[in-house]
Simulated scan of single mutants.
Amino acid sequence: MMRLLLASSSPARAATLRAAGIDPLLQPADLDEDALLRDAAAENGPLTVSEAVLLLARAKAQTVAATAAARAADVLVGCDSLLDLDGEPMGKPGTADRARARWLRMRGRTGVLRSGHWVRLRDGRTAGAVSSTTVRFADVSEAEIDAYVATGEPLNVAGAFTIDGLGGAFLTGIEGDPHGVVGISLPLLRELLIGLGVRWTDLWHPVSP
């Protein structure tokens, strides 16, 4: 069995991998995401949302590759997600006021959750790609928004919503891979691994009888 190291602190990403038969090692990446995006924009011009999430996913993988945890893994995966609303990137709101303002803008509309994936093998080979899943938001009331924000759930997730938690009731539909909304697209990750010569099933962990 090969071991996968996830360069993320997201419980939802880790849970998604476990449900798919993979027991990931975990090592969050310590980096200043805002500074990275500012520097990249200053050097190359404005970034699209897809370019931003792939840049951050790659940076997370590169940062964790230099840690002791990476030596125990065969495959290292970095991920990052942003909601693309009218071409504007929306990450974690961080505060209740920002989360509420986001929902007042998003309700009744459609956005695209973009998740960057960067895979690095022990031998240094890499591959990356972005998953894009269209999300339709319900036309929720202000009272519902206030109640949701008060739970704290939307404050620390990309786009200020979840599909696998309390926020799931406020989505009317999605187009694309639902795992991409959680922040790690299993089909896309499998394709990246195949391209690097790694079989998805080699990452499955033994199931106890």
Rank of each mutant, 00 (worst) to 15 (best):
G176E: 14
T67M: 13
L76H: 06
D177E: 10
L47C: 03
L47M: 06
S9L: 14
Y148P: 01
D23E: 13
V181W: 01
L31C: 08
A129N: 02
W103Y: 03
Q62H: 08
A69G: 05
P89V: 09
R58K: 07
L26M: 14
A12T: 09
L188I: 06
P178G: 14
A61F: 11
V75L: 09
R120Y: 06
D30V: 12
R13T: 09
P206E: 12
T16K: 14
L196I: 01
L6Y: 04
G183I: 01
A40Y: 07
R102I: 03
L83D: 07
P178R: 07
A59R: 04
R3K: 14
S8Q: 12
S115D: 03
M2D: 15
L37E: 03
R122H: 10
L76R: 08
A158N: 04
R3Y: 05
A147Y: 04
D32T: 13
R114S: 05
D34Q: 04
T110Q: 07
G159H: 09
A150R: 01
A99F: 13
P89R: 15
L113N: 15
R109I: 15
L55W: 00
C79M: 12
V182T: 09
S81A: 13
W103Q: 00
A99R: 09
A96C: 05
P24G: 04
A68E: 07
R13M: 10
F161A: 08
T133S: 08
L203Q: 04
L121Y: 03
T126N: 04
L47E: 06
L186G: 00
G152F: 01
V181I: 06
A73F: 02
M1N: 11
T172G: 03
T151V: 10
K92Q: 11
T48Y: 07
A158K: 00
D86L: 06
H205R: 10
D164F: 15
D32I: 07
V198P: 09
E88G: 03
V119T: 12
G87E: 05
E191A: 15
N44L: 05
M90G: 00
P24H: 14
R13P: 00
A40F: 11
G94D: 02
R102Y: 13
L25I: 13
G165W: 15
G108V: 14
D39T: 13
S115V: 02
V130R: 04
R109Q: 11
E144H: 03
L186C: 01
E175N: 06
G197F: 04
G167W: 14
T133A: 12
L36Y: 01
G167Y: 10
H117G: 13
I184P: 11
I22L: 11
P206V: 13
R190C: 13
T134I: 13
G152E: 01
T134C: 06
R98L: 09
S141N: 06
G176C: 14
M2A: 15
V182H: 12
P93L: 10
S10I: 10
P28F: 10
V181M: 07
I163V: 11
W118E: 15
D202A: 11
R107D: 00
R98K: 08
K60V: 02
A42D: 05
E191Y: 02
V149I: 05
F161R: 09
A143I: 00
S10V: 10
D177M: 12
G111K: 11
G197S: 08
L85I: 10
S115Y: 00
D123M: 14
D34S: 13
G165Y: 14
A65Q: 05
R125T: 02
V119N: 03
